[in-house]
Design a protein around this nucleic acid. Structure first.
Lengths: 206, 206
DNA sequence: TGGGAACTGGACGGTACGGTACCCGAACAA
DNA sequence: TTGTTCGGGTACCGTACCGTCCAGTTCCCA
């Protein structure tokens, strides 16, 4: 395990972040007590406060520590084979992965957690949005621009097109999950959203 | 005033709901104390508990009392002049009103309030979504179906098309507002989203 | 192996909140 | 005037939680 390669302090630090992530996700910011976190991390509360000055700081750390996972997402949208024949097929494949990644319960739960506390931590929500979703959108925009340069798409504003793409795909399932507290869609639903969304997108931008 | 026409009890009831709405919107469910509400309503806490058994019940009442305001929204999307020449113009006009209504700070704040507590009150979030947005979408779907019957649009699944329409328009500003805790867009932004969204929609469905 | 930093467990102060009990004063009847 | 009822406000109770303190222990590393 990587644990053994670190010092004790680093290990505790990681245990706290992991435990805090789990509890915050499950019970929300106000519903989570520092005692809960300490207990789950198998650590004394004192230690928690040694690593993080207070609850707010710990929450920020937890939220921002999730933004590095978007790199995989960025790789996903960084390129699309530029073949006219299979454009719809390639886009649909991309849409499937896009959807299945962003509709994972964990992702949606994190999203709800941040939105729920955006009034108390507005800069945190903004930071997460920038470092997370906006980076993906920007990458997707350059990919679309490249396709437009090769004459496969007709695009004025690539970033707007990227937003339209994601909106067509995600609006329905994300909305439902936000209001119901948990994902409501089946795999078949996602398939439908993917194909229909890509179809609409190509109608608009090809 | 209508107040005087009601009994004192009904007046107090209304005062409590009004005050509770304001405080819940501003400070969220956990951040709001029953004392806050009683104070703002100029009523004793005892009276609050006489009208509502507990805090949860009061919250439900407050949230569900907002769903009747969607009737105006439904009227808005219930019909579109079916003239081929001005279809884009008519849709754009609809889109403008659609956007300016649903991006009002109050509406977005309410949305955030419900999402934030959807894990504690899942049935409440679901109920609000059904009685609110889904009714609007259903109406919009029948409107689209009518346009399709007259050959102005080419639509397989009207409800999906209505979702695409709203997704194209709302995805960007709603997302931003959710994560920033307050609306971020200017009127010019909304105009852009409206025209671009309608343009994309017509590209996909005409 | 020894010294020192990091950790433990518990207790505690201060505070805020949900919900309840009790008291007070007004209105009304006799 | 006296008695009674009823609604509203204040004080209160129990609880939960954040953050701190302290005395004793464990673990890392030189």
């Amino acid at each position: 395990m990587a644990d053994t390669a670190q010092g004790r302090s680093a290990r505790k630090h990681q245990a706290i972040v992991t435990a805090a992530t789990e509890v915050f996700m499950a019970k929300g910011y106000p519903g989570t007590s520092m005692d809960d976190i300490a207990k789950l991390a198998a650590v004394s509360k004192q230690t928690v406060y040694k690593h993080f000055t207070d609850k707010e700081k710990l929450f920020s750390e937890v939220v921002l520590s999730t933004t590095d996972r978007v790199d995989a997402m960025i790789d996903l949208v960084a390129d699309i084979p530029a073949e006219a024949d299979t454009l719809e097929e390639n886009l649909t494949r991309l849409a499937h992965r896009f959807l299945s990644t962003l509709t994972q319960p964990q992702v949606l739960q994190l999203r709800r957690l941040i939105i729920a506390n955006a009034d108390i931590f507005p800069e945190l929500g903004a930071a997460w949005y920038e470092r997370g979703f906006e980076r993906v959108l920007a990458t997707l925009a350059t990919t679309f621009q490249r396709l437009a340069d090769r004459g496969l798409l007709r695009i004025d504003d690539p970033l707007l097109a990227a937003n339209h793409f994601s909106g067509l795909l995600l609006w329905i399932p994300v909305n439902q999950a936000m209001f119901h507290g948990a994902p409501q869609h089946t795999q078949a639903d996602l398939d439908r959203y993917a194909t229909a969304g890509v179809h609409a997108f190509l109608g608009a931008y090809r």
